[in-house]
Design a binder for these strands. Structure first.
Lengths: 211, 211
DNA sequence: CATCTAATCGGACCCCGGTCCGCTTAGTAG
DNA sequence: CTACTAAGCGGACCGGGGTCCGATTAGATG
């Protein structure tokens, strides 16, 4: 504790992977592959953490050391799709990306999220189960994005609250429930979302303002 | 199985309590009391089903036989408050009850629900955890109520979808998260809800129509 | 009161997510 | 190549929700 080795000072802690030991990195990959495969084969709901550990040829302790929790692992499995979506609404082409009016971007965001839900509902349900829902980094990004768009659409609204309220209607649980129990399919939910957004923001035809 | 006793035919199955054996009814009461007490003492999150069974002087099997699940038990503990609220918006005085314009009733509904959340957040969190959220009978009542009000406010909207979307923003999880992590207090959430509703329904000053 | 039966009881048991800690090993320094 | 150390490993373990089934008993019948 008292003597700090020079090497520890030189490590700039670039990224988690950078200072990960080789076997650790290998195990992370093995676990990710096993999880992805099992999720695809049986459905995420029917795959326990023990299953994944066994399939990856790894102890349960290792699994939790690498990923911390079931939700975090599920999130990691989805990171590619998730990043692609975020890329889309942050730097992509309109109407999802910058350039379109806020209302249009909001509608496109919801449709994109609903597509994501439709493609990965099961794994997302695992990723956003319980307390993980609000503390995940995607949620924070979504929240910020919606808050900015809402403020842009109407500076007088309580954008912080409305962003959370809107996000609530794009939750996995609701999506699955609406689809399975209430038989509202993807198209209907997209239309409903669009209606919701259009009613929320006045949607003035030419309100473009710089700054 | 083949011989049906006359007595079984005479039982009209009036209500669950009616055909419940005396000891069963007694145990149900004991369990409810113990649960209520423990929830109040320690907070629902720190009370396990074993704790409740022990405190009630009853086996775990009995507990689950009577209530089926943790969420159902929590719901039962709250049934009084829940009924009072439902009574309020079904048969109570305006603006919560019938008589006020739909928009006003919607706002009052959300405020009432938020009050309920504020009073019983912990137990409600247990009651609406996981899959129980959408399958509970209160949810169905809320859904119907909102659907009718939305249709009344604007017959052209997709009331079914909008009702679910609105209800999502009155979920316990979101309420707790907004209050604790985002520091949006009860008043702010009420104001936000009112804003949300007013933007959603045109709120024409005199749109009262019979039928 | 004795008998009978089906509802009830209760705790041992299961599965699951998550934690802990003593053993192993990668990677480095000499 | 050897020695050293901290990171990594893995499986025993824990508490919690929920299930099962042999033992018990309420309460009706005669």
């Amino acid at each position: 504790m008292e003597t700090i080795t020079p090497s520890s000072l030189e490590l700039p802690q670039l990224a988690p992977e950078a200072l990960e030991r080789a076997d650790a990195a290998r195990n992370r990959q093995r676990i990710l592959c096993a999880a992805q495969r099992l999720f695809a084969e049986r459905g995420a709901a029917c795959v326990s953490m023990d299953d994944i550990a066994d399939a990856a040829g790894v102890g349960k302790g290792t699994l939790f050391r690498r990923f911390g929790s079931r939700s975090a692992l599920a999130l990691a499995v989805l990171s590619e799709s998730e990043s692609a979506f975020q890329e889309g609404f942050i730097r992509g082409a309109p109407p999802l990306g910058p350039g379109a009016p806020a209302a249009e971007r909001l509608i496109a965001f919801g449709e994109g999220r609903l597509d994501l839900l439709a493609r990965h509902a099961e794994v997302l349900a695992a990723a956003e189960a319980g307390p993980a829902r609000f503390s995940s980094s995607p949620y924070e990004v979504y929240r910020l994005h919606l808050t900015l768009l809402l403020r842009e659409a109407d500076p007088d609204c309580d954008a912080e609250y409305l962003a959370e309220a809107l996000l609530a209607s794009l939750g996995v649980d609701l999506f699955l429930y609406l689809g399975l129990a209430r038989e509202l399919d993807l198209a209907r939910q997209k239309a409903g979302w669009a209606e919701l957004v259009r009613r929320l923001v006045p949607c003035p035809p030419s309100n473009a303002q710089s700054t």
